[in-house]
Design a protein around this nucleic acid. Structure first.
Lengths: 195, 195
DNA sequence: TTAATATTGAACACAGTGTTCAATAACAGT
DNA sequence: ACTGTTATTGAACACTGTGTTCAATATTAA
């Protein structure tokens, strides 16, 4: 509606991003943010109740972009069906797009907040896959898959995103019980398997 | 050496434990802690440089107890070899001993600090198992196993420790690629397998 | 142009931090 | 029990950052 609002909001988000890649979240003050954003103090508090509120908003924004349906970045709104593998790869590529901010958030007190939202979207994705395995409860299995993925992402970020999304995806699927049909001596795995 | 030192340290740790199960870490002030511990303000700062320093110390203390060699709780110092399964179960039982504090820490900003130390001990444990699987790099696999375990623990804490350590251990081993020899149609798994 | 609304920045009260210091208490060793 | 050493105490202090208020100003949509 009012262009001033989105303009200010964007300025604050950008300032936050700039600062979070350089400094620890705890060391950043509201004053720092509004200096960087070139925005009045009271303006900041009209948009966000707290520094933490800003962090939360930034995380939600990030996670929503990461999980936005494939095809959103192009012109077509797609309700197509994708394989689990494709979805995973897509998420990894979007994480790569926001490399630095994510690294900054994960290295600071922002970590649990980001992971909380990331997890909830991820669990939702996994639930849609309708996975089952042996006598392990579905809820346990779902948590295992979502959790493993999160851990892999954190490891990836820690390694400064060395290793390609393709490698990560292959290894990840390989290591999951439901997705690898390793009948022949645990040596091979089946990819592209739409579960 | 001086009994006053450990007495004060214990008083502060106990106060911290009492508060962390009731309140969010961020809402607890140094003043709260020294009131609860019945200790002078300057005394606190002689022991810890910061509230965060205390948190860190408490986490290290906790994790060290959790990973203390099996048999330490009895009189015998044991350098015996235990199976991976036994080690896991042991850790789960020790987590149960510290149920409330751990739940409190994991629910607050203490989470990443606790998990950091927990992870480093866990990775060390996994490395000692000398695991390998298919064409997945060892470093990836080790992170996957340690990470999965951490996620399972967090899930467990979230569920208020419903489910027995025995169940968790069985499911966990079942879901790991290296530990389950699921040749016969992914239906069964081998336990008690010393890898 | 206008009425509505967003921004500004200085001023403010407030809460919590970490330090200092001189007085006091508790300690270990003899 | 005595003594030199060391830990504890609590009040006072300067300091940093928070979140609010308000009247003046600027920008917006229509």
């Amino acid at each position: 509606m009012d262009r001033r609002i989105e303009k200010t909001r964007k300025a604050i988000f950008d300032a936050f991003d700039t600062l979070i890649v350089k400094f620890d979240y705890a060391k950043i003050s509201v004053q720092n943010i509004i200096n960087e954003a070139k925005v009045g103090r009271s303006t900041f508090y009209l948009h966000f109740t707290t520094k933490n509120d800003l962090l939360r908003a930034r995380c939600i924004d990030l996670v929503e972009r990461i999980f936005a349906p494939i095809g959103t970045e192009t012109t077509h709104a797609s309700s197509m069906k994708f394989t689990f593998e494709e979805k995973i790869m897509h998420i990894l590529y979007r994480l790569l797009d926001n490399k630095n901010v994510i690294k900054g958030i994960l290295a600071s007190e922002g970590r649990p907040i980001f992971l909380q939202y990331f997890r909830s979207y991820l669990v939702n994705t996994v639930e849609n896959e309708d996975v089952h395995f042996a006598e392990v409860p579905d809820i346990f299995l779902e948590n295992h898959i979502a959790g493993s993925f999160i851990e892999m992402v954190c490891w990836w970020v820690n390694c400064d995103f060395s290793e390609s999304p393709e490698n990560l995806t292959r290894w990840f699927l390989c290591v999951l019980p439901t997705l690898s049909t390793n009948i022949n001596d645990n040596k091979h795995l089946t990819l592209n398997k739409n579960i």
